[in-house]
Write a protein that binds this DNA or RNA. Structure first.
Lengths: 182, 182
DNA sequence: ACCTGAACACCGTTCAAGT
DNA sequence: ACCTGAACACCGTTCAAGT
């Protein structure tokens, strides 16, 4: 790969990331190309279709999510309370879901069988978290990692009020977390 | 309104209903016009934008939902078990949600303050159902009609497997229904 | 090998001309 | 009053020509 090609590719992804953070996933390809300082054809040389460019952005979110899950799992295996940690993590995801449509797609990737290595890692860590949740009797015994991914993907985004999103999360958590003994 | 105008309007809505049932909400305006036997301009005379035409289809779903809720409420006040009826209703909605994106939007309409008369009716009936659920101790005491509408709108559609949709519903119901005493 | 940018296809929307 | 359909705007995608 030629040096300028590598540089262009990075610039394109950067431009797409920036523009999609503001205008959502429907930022124009011409706009992205302009911001990256290349012609549209160059964008298409690196990403055959817009959906491929979006997939690249989504993959970044998967990576972030995998990292966040690793940290979560580390805290739990270091002795932290699984319930508290899971609730906090879910709240974090919910807070970001309001502005970031790529995040929702990232969670959706964990539902499908085609797993890239990062997706596989995220999924494994999620399974470890769920196992810990079971050991601590924080999660209902029938709840799986797939269930958590399912709830994360269906978590409402911008289409709903922030208070509605919080309320939704409270109901969803009640579906997977056992009632804490007091 | 001229006789042909009334007829055209009905034809356009019919065509949109048919095409959107198959190809989803992204059926083309030209396609709809052709099927209705009118020119595109005529479609735009009756519906200033495509979103207005979609709104008309969504309004039909709201109406259907209001009718279904009335029937539900009638059964409950005639002595039926609230839990059983609510679960059955939710399953019905979930089964249709897989093929019908307008249905999801219809549930979303119940979340927003701007209520048409049909929306208001649907909302009132839903509130009555929830009240009955409370009296029978089937729903958690903090659950509201708004909560039910919220869950209906966020219920996953075509983007998810049918079995995932069923599982999602089971988890969601666990968030609002009390554990039945055995 | 990779980049450029004009051109094409598609679809929502408009508007001058018709009845 | 309402309808017609060619034309416009916008955006994803392609491709012949350039380096």
């Amino acid at each position: 790969m030629r040096a300028d090609a590598t540089r262009n590719r990075a610039r394109i992804v950067q431009a797409a990331r920036d523009l999609m953070a503001d205008h959502g996933l429907d930022a124009g390809m011409d706009e992205i190309a302009a911001r990256a300082g290349v012609a549209v054809g160059t964008v298409y040389r690196h990403f055959p279709a817009k959906s491929d460019l979006i997939a690249a952005i989504v993959a970044e979110r998967v990576q972030q999510m995998a990292a966040a899950l690793d940290a979560l799992q580390a805290r739990i295996s270091a002795g932290a309370d699984a319930r508290t940690e899971i609730v906090a993590f879910a709240n974090d995801v919910a807070a970001r879901m309001g502005e970031d449509r790529a995040l929702k797609a990232a969670a959706g990737d964990l539902l499908r069988p085609s797993l890239s290595s990062v997706e596989g890692q995220a999924r494994d860590t999620l399974a470890a978290v769920v196992a810990a949740g079971h050991r601590q009797r924080a999660l209902y015994s029938d709840v799986t990692a797939h269930d958590l991914a399912l709830l994360f993907t269906t978590m409402p985004g911008e289409e709903v009020t922030e208070s509605d999103r919080r309320r939704w999360l409270a109901l969803a958590l009640r579906g997977i977390l056992t009632t804490p003994d007091r």
